[in-house]
Design a binder for these strands. Sequence first.
DNA 1: ACCTGAACACCGTTCAAGT
DNA 2: ACCTGAACACCGTTCAAGT
Lengths: 185, 185
Amino acid sequence: MSARRGTPLTIEEICSTAVRLIDESGVEGLSMRKLAAELDVNPMSLYHHVESKEALLGLVCATAAERMHMPPDDGSPWQEQLKALGLAYHRHALEHPALWGYLHTHPQLISDHRLAIWQTLYRILRLAGVPESELPRTSEILNAFVAGVIVAETQGRLSDDPEEIDRTFDLAVHLIINGMVSFSA
Amino acid sequence: MSARRGTPLTIEEICSTAVRLIDESGVEGLSMRKLAAELDVNPMSLYHHVESKEALLGLVCATAAERMHMPPDDGSPWQEQLKALGLAYHRHALEHPALWGYLHTHPQLISDHRLAIWQTLYRILRLAGVPESELPRTSEILNAFVAGVIVAETQGRLSDDPEEIDRTFDLAVHLIINGMVSFSA
DNA sequence: ACCTGAACACCGTTCAAGT
DNA sequence: ACCTGAACACCGTTCAAGT
Protein backbone atom coordinates (compact mmCIF):
# COMPACT_ATOMS: atom_id res chain seq x y z
CA MET A 1 0.00 0.00 0.00
CA SER A 2 1.34 3.43 -0.91
CA ALA A 3 1.60 6.45 1.38
CA ARG A 4 -1.72 7.96 2.42
CA ARG A 5 -0.37 11.40 1.67
CA GLY A 6 1.23 13.16 -1.25
CA THR A 7 4.58 14.13 0.23
CA PRO A 8 6.86 11.77 2.16
CA LEU A 9 7.38 12.20 5.89
CA THR A 10 10.29 14.33 7.06
CA ILE A 11 11.84 14.49 10.48
CA GLU A 12 11.16 18.24 10.60
CA GLU A 13 7.47 17.67 9.95
CA ILE A 14 7.36 15.03 12.68
CA CYS A 15 9.10 17.36 15.15
CA SER A 16 7.01 20.43 14.48
CA THR A 17 3.76 18.45 14.67
CA ALA A 18 4.93 16.89 17.93
CA VAL A 19 5.64 20.35 19.34
CA ARG A 20 2.17 21.51 18.37
CA LEU A 21 0.51 18.50 20.02
CA ILE A 22 2.61 18.98 23.16
CA ASP A 23 1.64 22.66 23.28
CA GLU A 24 -2.01 21.66 22.99
CA SER A 25 -2.19 18.85 25.51
CA GLY A 26 1.11 18.32 27.29
CA VAL A 27 3.81 15.69 26.93
CA GLU A 28 1.65 13.04 28.57
CA GLY A 29 -1.03 13.87 25.99
CA LEU A 30 1.31 12.99 23.13
CA SER A 31 1.25 9.45 21.79
CA MET A 32 2.96 8.00 18.77
CA ARG A 33 -0.42 6.90 17.50
CA LYS A 34 -2.03 10.34 17.82
CA LEU A 35 1.01 11.93 16.23
CA ALA A 36 0.78 9.51 13.30
CA ALA A 37 -2.94 10.21 12.93
CA GLU A 38 -2.23 13.94 12.88
CA LEU A 39 0.31 13.34 10.10
CA ASP A 40 -2.14 11.07 8.26
CA VAL A 41 0.29 8.20 8.36
CA ASN A 42 0.56 4.72 9.80
CA PRO A 43 1.86 4.75 13.41
CA MET A 44 4.76 2.55 12.41
CA SER A 45 5.99 4.91 9.71
CA LEU A 46 7.32 7.17 12.46
CA TYR A 47 9.80 4.51 13.47
CA HIS A 48 11.64 4.90 10.17
CA HIS A 49 12.60 8.42 11.19
CA VAL A 50 12.90 8.10 14.95
CA GLU A 51 14.14 5.31 17.15
CA SER A 52 11.57 5.59 19.92
CA LYS A 53 9.19 7.98 21.60
CA GLU A 54 11.90 8.93 24.08
CA ALA A 55 14.34 9.69 21.26
CA LEU A 56 11.69 11.82 19.57
CA LEU A 57 11.14 13.82 22.75
CA GLY A 58 14.88 14.28 23.06
CA LEU A 59 15.07 15.56 19.50
CA VAL A 60 12.14 17.91 20.04
CA CYS A 61 13.76 19.34 23.17
CA ALA A 62 17.13 19.73 21.47
CA THR A 63 15.69 21.69 18.56
CA ALA A 64 13.68 23.84 20.99
CA ALA A 65 16.86 24.59 22.95
CA GLU A 66 18.78 25.42 19.77
CA ARG A 67 16.08 27.75 18.53
CA MET A 68 16.21 29.86 21.69
CA HIS A 69 17.22 33.36 20.79
CA MET A 70 20.25 34.57 22.77
CA PRO A 71 20.72 38.21 23.69
CA PRO A 72 23.94 39.48 22.05
CA ASP A 73 26.85 40.98 23.97
CA ASP A 74 25.91 44.67 23.92
CA GLY A 75 28.69 45.74 26.27
CA SER A 76 26.35 46.44 29.18
CA PRO A 77 27.21 45.35 32.75
CA TRP A 78 26.92 41.65 33.57
CA GLN A 79 23.93 42.29 35.83
CA GLU A 80 21.89 43.60 32.92
CA GLN A 81 23.05 40.89 30.57
CA LEU A 82 22.20 38.19 33.09
CA LYS A 83 18.76 39.65 33.49
CA ALA A 84 18.28 39.82 29.72
CA LEU A 85 19.30 36.15 29.43
CA GLY A 86 16.87 35.20 32.18
CA LEU A 87 14.07 37.07 30.46
CA ALA A 88 14.83 35.45 27.10
CA TYR A 89 14.77 32.04 28.77
CA HIS A 90 11.57 32.91 30.55
CA ARG A 91 9.79 34.15 27.45
CA HIS A 92 10.80 31.15 25.42
CA ALA A 93 9.65 28.76 28.14
CA LEU A 94 6.25 30.43 28.41
CA GLU A 95 5.70 29.83 24.70
CA HIS A 96 6.08 26.07 25.12
CA PRO A 97 5.42 25.46 28.83
CA ALA A 98 4.81 21.72 28.67
CA LEU A 99 7.91 21.12 26.57
CA TRP A 100 10.15 23.08 28.94
CA GLY A 101 8.61 21.33 31.90
CA TYR A 102 9.67 18.05 30.33
CA LEU A 103 13.08 19.39 29.38
CA HIS A 104 13.79 20.61 32.89
CA THR A 105 12.93 17.29 34.44
CA HIS A 106 15.20 15.50 31.95
CA PRO A 107 18.20 17.78 32.31
CA GLN A 108 20.52 15.41 30.47
CA LEU A 109 18.77 16.71 27.35
CA ILE A 110 20.50 20.07 27.65
CA SER A 111 23.64 18.93 29.41
CA ASP A 112 25.86 19.69 26.42
CA HIS A 113 27.76 22.82 27.42
CA ARG A 114 28.55 23.64 23.80
CA LEU A 115 24.95 24.78 23.35
CA ALA A 116 24.47 28.50 22.79
CA ILE A 117 22.71 28.96 26.11
CA TRP A 118 25.70 27.65 28.05
CA GLN A 119 28.20 29.62 25.99
CA THR A 120 26.23 32.80 26.62
CA LEU A 121 25.99 32.06 30.32
CA TYR A 122 29.73 31.34 30.50
CA ARG A 123 30.49 34.67 28.82
CA ILE A 124 28.32 36.62 31.26
CA LEU A 125 29.70 34.78 34.30
CA ARG A 126 33.27 35.54 33.18
CA LEU A 127 32.23 39.16 32.99
CA ALA A 128 30.94 38.83 36.56
CA GLY A 129 34.34 37.61 37.73
CA VAL A 130 33.60 33.92 38.16
CA PRO A 131 36.89 32.01 37.88
CA GLU A 132 37.23 29.64 34.93
CA SER A 133 37.29 26.53 37.13
CA GLU A 134 33.94 27.45 38.70
CA LEU A 135 32.11 28.16 35.43
CA PRO A 136 30.51 24.72 34.95
CA ARG A 137 29.29 24.48 38.53
CA THR A 138 28.02 28.04 38.72
CA SER A 139 26.22 27.89 35.40
CA GLU A 140 24.56 24.60 36.32
CA ILE A 141 23.25 26.14 39.51
CA LEU A 142 21.94 29.29 37.87
CA ASN A 143 20.28 27.18 35.21
CA ALA A 144 18.73 25.00 37.91
CA PHE A 145 17.41 28.10 39.70
CA VAL A 146 15.76 29.43 36.58
CA ALA A 147 14.50 25.98 35.66
CA GLY A 148 12.89 25.65 39.08
CA VAL A 149 11.13 28.99 38.76
CA ILE A 150 9.94 28.20 35.25
CA VAL A 151 8.57 24.82 36.30
CA ALA A 152 6.75 26.40 39.24
CA GLU A 153 5.33 29.00 36.89
CA THR A 154 4.36 26.82 33.96
CA GLN A 155 2.93 24.12 36.19
CA GLY A 156 0.67 26.80 37.54
CA ARG A 157 1.74 27.14 41.12
CA LEU A 158 2.56 30.81 40.84
CA SER A 159 -0.20 33.30 40.20
CA ASP A 160 -1.43 33.69 36.64
CA ASP A 161 -1.82 37.45 36.86
CA PRO A 162 0.86 38.55 34.34
CA GLU A 163 1.95 41.49 36.46
CA GLU A 164 2.36 39.22 39.48
CA ILE A 165 4.40 36.80 37.37
CA ASP A 166 6.69 39.61 36.28
CA ARG A 167 7.23 40.80 39.84
CA THR A 168 8.00 37.27 40.95
CA PHE A 169 10.46 36.70 38.14
CA ASP A 170 12.05 40.07 38.88
CA LEU A 171 12.54 39.02 42.48
CA ALA A 172 14.16 35.76 41.35
CA VAL A 173 16.57 37.61 39.06
CA HIS A 174 17.26 40.14 41.80
CA LEU A 175 18.10 37.37 44.26
CA ILE A 176 20.40 35.65 41.80
CA ILE A 177 22.24 38.83 40.89
CA ASN A 178 22.67 39.81 44.52
CA GLY A 179 23.99 36.36 45.23
CA MET A 180 26.47 36.67 42.38
CA VAL A 181 27.77 40.03 43.49
CA SER A 182 30.12 38.40 45.99
CA PHE A 183 32.09 36.94 43.06
CA SER A 184 32.63 40.23 41.32
CA ALA A 185 33.79 42.01 44.47
CA MET B 1 -14.03 -14.98 45.65
CA SER B 2 -12.41 -13.93 48.90
CA ALA B 3 -9.26 -11.84 49.30
CA ARG B 4 -6.08 -13.54 48.14
CA ARG B 5 -4.36 -12.46 51.32
CA GLY B 6 -4.98 -12.74 55.03
CA THR B 7 -5.27 -9.10 56.02
CA PRO B 8 -7.39 -6.50 54.20
CA LEU B 9 -5.77 -3.73 52.21
CA THR B 10 -5.07 -0.43 53.91
CA ILE B 11 -4.29 2.90 52.35
CA GLU B 12 -1.02 3.03 54.32
CA GLU B 13 0.07 -0.29 52.87
CA ILE B 14 -0.78 0.90 49.36
CA CYS B 15 1.19 4.12 49.87
CA SER B 16 4.30 2.57 51.35
CA THR B 17 4.43 -0.11 48.67
CA ALA B 18 4.00 2.55 46.00
CA VAL B 19 6.90 4.51 47.49
CA ARG B 20 9.08 1.42 47.42
CA LEU B 21 8.25 0.69 43.78
CA ILE B 22 8.89 4.33 42.84
CA ASP B 23 12.24 4.23 44.62
CA GLU B 24 13.11 1.07 42.71
CA SER B 25 12.09 2.03 39.20
CA GLY B 26 10.80 5.60 39.05
CA VAL B 27 7.32 7.05 38.76
CA GLU B 28 7.01 5.95 35.13
CA GLY B 29 7.88 2.44 36.28
CA LEU B 30 4.89 2.35 38.62
CA SER B 31 1.64 0.93 37.30
CA MET B 32 -1.56 0.17 39.14
CA ARG B 33 -1.29 -3.40 37.91
CA LYS B 34 2.27 -3.91 39.16
CA LEU B 35 1.36 -2.30 42.46
CA ALA B 36 -1.58 -4.66 42.83
CA ALA B 37 0.60 -7.65 41.99
CA GLU B 38 3.11 -6.54 44.62
CA LEU B 39 0.27 -6.40 47.16
CA ASP B 40 -1.04 -9.76 45.96
CA VAL B 41 -4.39 -8.29 45.12
CA ASN B 42 -6.61 -7.73 42.11
CA PRO B 43 -5.75 -4.50 40.27
CA MET B 44 -9.27 -3.23 40.77
CA SER B 45 -9.14 -3.58 44.54
CA LEU B 46 -6.91 -0.51 44.64
CA TYR B 47 -9.76 1.62 43.36
CA HIS B 48 -11.71 1.06 46.56
CA HIS B 49 -9.03 2.98 48.43
CA VAL B 50 -7.90 5.50 45.87
CA GLU B 51 -9.75 7.37 43.17
CA SER B 52 -7.14 7.14 40.43
CA LYS B 53 -3.45 6.72 39.79
CA GLU B 54 -3.01 10.48 39.84
CA ALA B 55 -4.77 10.74 43.21
CA LEU B 56 -2.52 7.98 44.55
CA LEU B 57 0.61 9.83 43.43
CA GLY B 58 -0.73 12.99 45.05
CA LEU B 59 -1.30 11.13 48.30
CA VAL B 60 2.15 9.57 48.19
CA CYS B 61 3.74 12.98 47.64
CA ALA B 62 1.72 14.60 50.41
CA THR B 63 2.74 11.98 52.96
CA ALA B 64 6.37 12.28 51.86
CA ALA B 65 6.19 16.06 52.31
CA GLU B 66 4.59 15.71 55.74
CA ARG B 67 7.21 13.24 56.89
CA MET B 68 10.05 15.62 56.13
CA HIS B 69 11.88 16.42 59.32
CA MET B 70 12.12 20.17 59.98
CA PRO B 71 15.09 21.68 61.80
CA PRO B 72 13.82 23.38 65.00
CA ASP B 73 14.33 27.04 65.84
CA ASP B 74 17.61 26.88 67.76
CA GLY B 75 18.04 30.62 67.99
CA SER B 76 20.92 30.74 65.52
CA PRO B 77 21.14 33.42 62.80
CA TRP B 78 18.77 33.12 59.83
CA GLN B 79 21.64 32.31 57.49
CA GLU B 80 22.46 29.16 59.42
CA GLN B 81 18.83 28.17 59.81
CA LEU B 82 18.21 28.64 56.09
CA LYS B 83 21.19 26.46 55.32
CA ALA B 84 19.98 23.79 57.75
CA LEU B 85 16.56 23.79 56.10
CA GLY B 86 18.13 23.48 52.67
CA LEU B 87 20.23 20.55 53.83
CA ALA B 88 17.24 18.81 55.39
CA TYR B 89 15.32 19.24 52.14
CA HIS B 90 18.29 18.02 50.15
CA ARG B 91 18.85 14.94 52.30
CA HIS B 92 15.20 13.96 52.21
CA ALA B 93 15.03 14.38 48.45
CA LEU B 94 18.09 12.20 47.90
CA GLU B 95 16.38 9.38 49.79
CA HIS B 96 13.48 9.34 47.33
CA PRO B 97 14.85 11.01 44.20
CA ALA B 98 12.19 9.85 41.74
CA LEU B 99 9.36 10.85 44.06
CA TRP B 100 10.75 14.35 44.59
CA GLY B 101 11.38 14.70 40.90
CA TYR B 102 7.69 14.04 40.35
CA LEU B 103 6.67 16.29 43.23
CA HIS B 104 8.70 19.19 41.91
CA THR B 105 7.19 18.95 38.47
CA HIS B 106 3.70 18.90 39.97
CA PRO B 107 4.13 21.79 42.37
CA GLN B 108 0.42 22.07 43.09
CA LEU B 109 0.99 19.01 45.26
CA ILE B 110 2.84 21.06 47.86
CA SER B 111 1.15 24.38 47.26
CA ASP B 112 -0.57 24.37 50.66
CA HIS B 113 1.32 26.97 52.68
CA ARG B 114 0.10 25.47 55.95
CA LEU B 115 2.55 22.59 55.47
CA ALA B 116 5.41 22.47 57.94
CA ILE B 117 7.98 23.24 55.29
CA TRP B 118 6.32 26.53 54.40
CA GLN B 119 5.77 27.50 58.01
CA THR B 120 9.44 26.88 58.75
CA LEU B 121 10.50 28.86 55.71
CA TYR B 122 8.20 31.74 56.67
CA ARG B 123 9.69 31.84 60.16
CA ILE B 124 13.24 31.97 58.85
CA LEU B 125 12.41 34.61 56.24
CA ARG B 126 10.80 36.79 58.91
CA LEU B 127 14.02 36.46 60.87
CA ALA B 128 15.85 37.61 57.73
CA GLY B 129 13.73 40.75 57.60
CA VAL B 130 11.43 39.87 54.72
CA PRO B 131 8.23 41.93 55.07
CA GLU B 132 5.04 39.97 55.73
CA SER B 133 3.52 40.88 52.36
CA GLU B 134 6.50 39.43 50.51
CA LEU B 135 6.61 36.11 52.38
CA PRO B 136 4.55 34.01 49.93
CA ARG B 137 6.41 35.23 46.87
CA THR B 138 9.85 34.97 48.43
CA SER B 139 9.26 31.51 49.83
CA GLU B 140 7.91 30.27 46.49
CA ILE B 141 11.04 31.47 44.76
CA LEU B 142 13.43 29.96 47.27
CA ASN B 143 11.54 26.69 47.08
CA ALA B 144 11.71 26.82 43.28
CA PHE B 145 15.47 27.38 43.45
CA VAL B 146 16.04 24.41 45.69
CA ALA B 147 13.61 22.30 43.66
CA GLY B 148 15.54 23.13 40.50
CA VAL B 149 18.85 22.11 42.05
CA ILE B 150 17.38 18.90 43.43
CA VAL B 151 15.87 17.94 40.08
CA ALA B 152 19.19 18.61 38.34
CA GLU B 153 20.91 16.48 40.95
CA THR B 154 18.50 13.57 41.16
CA GLN B 155 18.05 13.40 37.41
CA GLY B 156 21.75 12.93 37.26
CA ARG B 157 22.98 15.99 35.48
CA LEU B 158 25.29 17.07 38.26
CA SER B 159 28.32 14.97 39.12
CA ASP B 160 27.77 11.87 41.22
CA ASP B 161 30.93 12.31 43.25
CA PRO B 162 29.46 13.01 46.73
CA GLU B 163 32.04 15.63 47.56
CA GLU B 164 31.32 17.43 44.31
CA ILE B 165 27.59 17.32 45.06
CA ASP B 166 28.20 18.85 48.47
CA ARG B 167 30.29 21.66 47.02
CA THR B 168 27.65 22.37 44.40
CA PHE B 169 24.87 22.45 46.95
CA ASP B 170 26.98 24.67 49.19
CA LEU B 171 27.40 27.10 46.32
CA ALA B 172 23.65 27.14 45.74
CA VAL B 173 22.96 27.88 49.41
CA HIS B 174 25.69 30.49 49.41
CA LEU B 175 24.16 32.23 46.40
CA ILE B 176 20.70 32.21 47.93
CA ILE B 177 21.87 33.57 51.26
CA ASN B 178 23.91 36.30 49.61
CA GLY B 179 20.89 37.21 47.53
CA MET B 180 18.74 37.41 50.66
CA VAL B 181 21.16 39.62 52.53
CA SER B 182 19.80 42.72 50.81
CA PHE B 183 16.53 42.21 52.69
CA SER B 184 18.06 42.07 56.13
CA ALA B 185 20.15 45.20 55.58
C1' DA C 1 -17.94 -2.65 52.77
C1' DC C 2 -14.70 -4.86 50.17
C1' DC C 3 -13.08 -7.60 46.51
C1' DT C 4 -13.25 -9.89 41.87
C1' DG C 5 -12.95 -11.11 36.50
C1' DA C 6 -14.14 -9.65 32.12
C1' DA C 7 -14.07 -6.07 29.11
C1' DC C 8 -13.04 -1.39 26.88
C1' DA C 9 -10.23 1.89 24.99
C1' DC C 10 -6.06 2.93 24.81
C1' DC C 11 -0.49 2.57 24.79
C1' DG C 12 4.77 1.62 22.55
C1' DT C 13 6.96 -1.44 19.72
C1' DT C 14 8.28 -5.91 16.80
C1' DC C 15 7.84 -8.32 12.77
C1' DA C 16 7.02 -9.91 8.22
C1' DA C 17 5.28 -8.28 4.15
C1' DG C 18 4.47 -5.00 0.63
C1' DT C 19 6.04 -0.95 -3.09
C1' DA D 1 14.32 3.28 1.16
C1' DC D 2 10.00 3.88 2.86
C1' DC D 3 5.60 2.44 4.30
C1' DT D 4 1.99 -0.89 5.90
C1' DG D 5 -1.32 -4.17 8.86
C1' DA D 6 -1.42 -7.55 12.21
C1' DA D 7 0.08 -8.80 16.48
C1' DC D 8 2.26 -8.64 21.28
C1' DA D 9 2.66 -7.16 25.73
C1' DC D 10 1.39 -3.87 28.22
C1' DC D 11 -1.61 0.36 30.32
C1' DG D 12 -5.81 2.89 33.43
C1' DT D 13 -10.39 2.36 34.34
C1' DT D 14 -15.71 0.92 34.07
C1' DC D 15 -19.00 -2.28 35.13
C1' DA D 16 -21.71 -5.96 36.86
C1' DA D 17 -21.27 -9.57 39.89
C1' DG D 18 -19.80 -11.83 43.91
C1' DT D 19 -18.96 -12.25 49.56
